[in-house]
Amino acid sequence: MRALVARRLEGPDTLELIETPIPEPAAGQVRIKVAAAAVNPVDLAVSAGLAVQFGLTAPREQFGLGWDVAGTVDAVGSGVDLTPGTAVIGLADLLGRSLKTHAEYVVLDAHAVAPTTMDPVAASTIPLNAITALQALRAISGQTVLVTGAAGGVGGYAVELAKHQGLTVIATAGDQDEDLVRRLGADHFVRRSADLATAVREIVPAGVDALVDAAIVGVGAQEAVRNGGQHVHLQAGPRPPHLRNITVEQLFLHANRRDLTELVELVEAGAISTRVAETYPLQDAATAYRRLAKGGVRGRLVLIP
């Protein structure tokens, strides 16, 4: 099979599409014939060596790429309750795998896979971004939430999920993204160019109950949070300080079928959306990576084997 890997860790220009044996599922695992796999910023980071640099994974000769996948179960190991032919989405949440979802086949633990009837290209845009947003919102309480980077993958889902939960959402993004962010459900929009804390406190004078910092603004965004509020930090490395008794939760997502199933159901109910920006054949993966690296992509770029 063909699989996209990073060996030199120098970014998109050094990615390699290799021929490698089709992997076999062990006990508790499934093999998926990949129909579509989204490209995410974390894939760029891994290809550039940042995961090793930040100590998130050990150096190795080869890194597989791709977290999201949609496709069809092709084979199963013992103890698995899914059958070949089942359409699924899945999430490969281990950084250090030598083969991941940007390939023709991928093996995942069965708990990281959920059945779906959605179009696979659309479905492949859900797992990583939406599960991150879902788990971030589970880490907070209160009625008002500030979402930074609200036009991006994680931020957009955080807005939609927060509105579905009945929260009041203040969202920040670029000036050109206001219409999109409001369509996603934001109650209030703050331009990224504005003084964030001042603008938010004009809406909620005491400050918001919680911050989901998808854009990694850091302390500048935390100034918009009330004393004793909550800050969910979505990046590895040093986390912001606990100023004014604000609880800072550094989130590291984990794949699980319960959350993936919930997200599928929310899409089917129209509560959250799928966002496909563009599709590329697997052999043009480097082009997709370079496009993502330029920035400004709204939705996900999706690879088709």
Rank of each mutant, 00 (worst) to 15 (best):
I131C: 01
T101L: 05
L137T: 03
A133P: 03
P120Y: 12
T101K: 02
L128S: 11
A122L: 09
D109R: 15
Y105L: 05
L128V: 03
A110H: 07
I140L: 13
A103L: 08
I126D: 11
L99E: 09
A123I: 01
I131K: 06
A122D: 12
M118V: 08
V107F: 05
T116I: 02
D109N: 12
A136W: 02
M118H: 14
A133D: 02
K100Q: 13
D119I: 06
T132N: 03
N129W: 10
P127F: 03
M118D: 12
T125H: 11
V121A: 01
K100D: 03
R138I: 00
H102T: 03
T117D: 10
I126P: 09
A122G: 12
Y105E: 11
T125M: 08
Q135K: 03
T125W: 04
L137W: 05
V113M: 12
L99V: 14
M118S: 10
A122M: 11
V107M: 01
Q135M: 10
K100C: 13
R138D: 15
L134N: 13
D109W: 02
A103S: 13
I140F: 09
I126F: 14
A122R: 13
V107I: 03
L108I: 13
I140Q: 08
Q135F: 05
A112H: 11
I131W: 09
A112V: 03
T132I: 06
P120S: 14
A123F: 03
A123S: 01
E104V: 06
A136D: 08
N129A: 15
T117C: 02
A112D: 13
H111R: 15
D109V: 11
A136L: 01
A130M: 09
N129Y: 09
S124K: 12
A103N: 02
P127C: 07
V113D: 01
